[in-house]
């Protein structure tokens, strides 16, 4: 799947009247099959932009086009299904169900999409193996280290072969060395799977892994630059 995600004049306002806060004040962005880091200070609109691009929230105005459809016009139910089938997500923490072993956490989106349990579990186990977690399939999130947990989250994000993976501060809860490992794995695996990657971060070290870095300030894109990032590696289908 070749990523073609476009945002046009994206605006998001919370509240109204004099107390209104403009989280997005007119953002234009095109995303190809690339890795993109969204940087900026707290309150600059990074996470709101990610939520709008991923169809989590409807923007106040403007459009987000994915595969020819405007996410802003889709119903909540349709956007939920689309997030499951076309996008993958990696958050800072708290995304894995504590009662499920790693392999079932990864198989979850496939089963939700109607894949039978055996096939879903087999594919999930292959992804865990690919991400260096062979032998830990039956461990539950509480029995994994922070870095291992994020690898499980990456496997879950990629198992459905998404078009775009959205990551919100994916290394925020990890130490520097583990964070570098996780970013390396996230960028390489996403690229090898042919998916685009959008990473929201405030960390220059994390952004350096991406081929393109945009910076936000007061709800606007204030900088857009290409970086010489390398993302070699092998993927899995």
């Amino acid at each position: 799947m070749t990523a073609t995600l476009s945002a046009r004049d994206l605006r998001m306002t919370y509240g109204d009247g004099p107390a209104a806060a403009h989280a997005l004040a007119g953002v234009d962005l095109d995303l190809g099959a690339e890795s993109l880091a969204v940087m900026g200070p707290s309150g600059s609109g990074k996470t709101t932009l990610l939520h709008c691009l991923a169809g989590i929230v409807r923007p106040t105005s403007g459009s987000v086009t994915w595969q020819g459809q405007d996410l802003a016009r889709l119903s909540d139910a349709r956007r939920t299904v689309l997030r499951r089938s076309d996008f993958g997500f990696v958050f800072q923490s708290g995304q894995l169900l504590p009662e499920l072993p790693a392999v079932e956490n990864v198989a979850l989106p496939l089963m939700l999409a109607g894949v039978d349990r055996r096939t879903a579990t087999e594919r999930a186990a292959r992804w865990l193996d690919h991400l260096g977690l062979a032998g830990l399939e039956q461990r539950r999130p509480g029995e994994l280290s922070g870095g291992q947990g994020q690898r499980v989250a990456i496997a879950r994000a990629l198992v459905t072969s998404p078009g775009v993976v959205f990551a919100d501060e994916p290394t925020g809860a990890l130490d520097a060395a583990t964070g570098q490992e996780v970013m390396s794995l996230l960028v390489r695996s996403t690229s090898a799977a042919g998916a685009a990657l959008v990473v929201v971060t405030h960390d220059e070290g994390v952004a350096a892994w991406c081929g393109r870095v945009v910076t936000m300030g007061d709800g606007l894109l204030v900088d857009d630059r290409r970086t010489p990032a390398a993302a070699p590696g092998g993927g899995l289908r």
């Binding site: 939920t80 997500f89 958050f91 923490s93 879950r156």
Partner: peptide, 14 residues
């Protein structure tokens, strides 16, 4: 488990 519920829903779980 509010955090996990939220993350699951964001990732497309009805």
């Amino acid at each position: 488990h509010a955090g996990e519920y939220r993350a699951l829903h964001l990732a497309g779980t009805e």
